[in-house]
Design a protein around this nucleic acid. Structure first.
Length: 479
RNA sequence: GGUCUCGUAGUAUAACGGUUAGUACAUCGGGUUUUCAUCCCGACAACGCGGGUUCGACUCCCGCCGAGAUCACCA
């Protein structure tokens, strides 16, 4: 039997790191088993519907490289993929239940139900609607809530992550199938859709674990086979033990994209949060994840989201792309991340800059703050010089003469490249008798006025003879 | 309150009855002719508690404690 998984978000806003994992795992398992991933939009709650949310979801999935085989945009044999467009289908299935006596119209006003519920909480007993089931419900018609008629019993089932499960009758109730507004509830719609679409693995957050017995009863009443259940533990917020949500400031996945996180790193980090293959590998490509992923190694407990590790992983990916695919490949990812002043510089120059700064980037957006001085004349800030822990050991006169000697030596250099520059630098060291820390700090600051920068010879090579010398001269004059 | 789930260093995890409890991030120290970073080396740091079972328990069983989920005409 071929595997069909699905990601079924409701369009109520952006996707954040707390909930993308329920897209990643279904994707991985679908690809590994050469099956299908369906994207289905669960938009039956009109009150919570957010305009544009579907597009946001699609963007997120595309950015992460999680292509879906059926769903919005791509279509498929089970269209439509928006639940709001499938009302007739749910009605048809609901009729079967009514005909077999397993569903009935609920005439109880919400206030009355609320009163029942309050009474139960007061008595510290669980509230079960079926205990208040009306004896002679009216004939159901659109505009009334339709309830399932539960036939509570013991259920045993297997969860691919949590293991063997069982539940007694006490958790099964007459759940609402169709709401007053004619839309189905999640509880009913997802079962119908999963069955119609041939979904084999129902993968979702653990919060659905406790309602599974109700679903089981529904599958049975509908004469449908049970799919495989896969409960995904929560991702926990950095503080506390609650699942990560928007309230905790969970950023949208696309926000990370805009902050310069690579999709490879994001996917890698998220996939490995709460899952591992038993080896000590940390960095996985998408293909490697597809190969080694397995449901039974998904963690059963929640995992805390750790942005620091994400950042580390992003750095690993940045370097990996540079090392394996070259500057060009990394440069292609950086287009939106250069400082504004870089706009007028050509690609070649920016590639050179990139190739000497890339190994100190944590995110692509670090480029903005780290590379200014390659594109505009730095403001001379003598404090930076005099307060530097090495340069401050030198007197003003020494600084002036060191600068002059450096200018003289560099001016006469014919081959302006990293190797020859290093040669000059070494000669200067010997001639002046200064420590590298003193001389190099001085020159470094004089040409960049940045808190840190790449190796001196590389910086000078990229900057070029003219800029290097004119900056040194400017500082010499300013002293 | 009922039901269910979970519990290894600060964090993410390995171990599937016998190891000095491994790895990664973080932290701290050191090295690579300046800085920042990379890279390399090193250090610190964990089996929630209590009972069993066993020659031997992180691993199996029970109890406790702690944390979480759920009990909507939300998904």
């Amino acid at each position: 039997m071929s595997v069909v998984t699905r990601f079924a978000p409701s369009p109520t806003g952006y996707i954040h790191i707390g909930n993308v994992r329920s897209a990643i795992y279904p994707y991985l398992i679908a690809r590994q088993k050469k099956g299908k991933l369906i994207l289905r939009i669960e938009d039956t709650d009109r009150a919570r519907y957010v305009e544009g949310a579907t597009e946001l979801i699609e963007d997120t999935l595309k950015w992460l490289g999680l292509e879906w085989d059926e769903g919005p945009i791509v279509g498929g044999p089970n269209a439509p993929y928006f639940q709001s467009e499938r009302k007739e289908i749910y009605l048809e299935w609901a009729k079967k239940l009514i005909d077999s006596g397993r569903a009935y119209a609920d005439p109880t006003p919400p206030e009355t139900i609320e009163a029942y519920r309050n009474e139960c909480t007061k008595n510290k007993t669980p509230f079960l609607y079926r205990n208040f089931r009306p004896e002679n419900p009216p004939k159901w018609e659109l505009g009334m809530p339709l309830r399932f008629k539960a036939d509570p019993k013991d259920y045993k089932w297997h969860d691919e992550v949590m293991g063997d499960m069982h539940a007694g009758p006490e958790v099964q109730d007459d759940i609402i199938l169709i709401k007053k507004d004619g839309y189905p509830t999640y509880n009913f719609a997802h079962i119908v859709d999963d069955a119609e679409m041939g979904v084999t693995h129902v993968m979702r957050g653990v919060e659905y674990l406790s309602s599974t017995p109700n679903y089981l009863a529904l599958y049975d009443a509908l004469n449908l086979p049970w799919p495989k259940f896969v409960s995904l533990p929560h991702i926990l917020a950095p503080q506390g033990n609650k699942k990560l949500g928007k309230r905790d400031g969970a950023k949208s996945v696309t926000e990370y994209r805009d902050d310069g996180i690579l999709p490879e790193a994001m996917l890698n980090y998220l996939a490995c949060l709460g899952w591992n293959d038993g080896t000590e590998q940390e960095i996985y490509t998408k293909d490697e994840l597809i190969d080694s992923f397995s449901l039974d190694r998904i963690q059963t407990s929640g995992a805390r989201y750790d942005e620091v590790k994400l950042l580390w992983m992003n750095g690993q990916w940045l370097r990996r792309i540079f090392d394996e695919q070259g500057v060009g490949a990394l440069y292609d990812r950086t287009r939106d991340f250069w400082p504004e002043v870089a706009a007028n510089f050509d690609e070649d120059y920016k590639k050179k800059v990139l190739s000497i700064v890339y190994d100190r980037l944590k995110t692509l957006s670090d480029l903005r703050s780290m590379t200014d001085y390659f594109f505009k004349e730095p403001e001379i800030d003598l404090d930076l010089l005099t307060k530097n822990k090495f340069v401050k050991k030198l007197s003003e006169a020494e600084i002036e003469s060191l600068l002059k000697e450096s200018i003289a030596a560099l001016s006469s250099l014919s081959e302006w490249d990293a190797d020859h520059l290093q040669g000059v630098l070494n000669g200067l060291l010997e001639k002046t008798g200064k420590k590298p820390a003193e001389l190099f700090s001085l020159i470094r600051i004089a040409i960049s006025f940045a808190p840190f920068s790449p190796a001196l010879n590389l910086t000078m090579e990229v900057l070029g003879r003219d800029k290097t010398l004119s900056r040194l001269n400017a500082v010499a004059r300013a002293i």
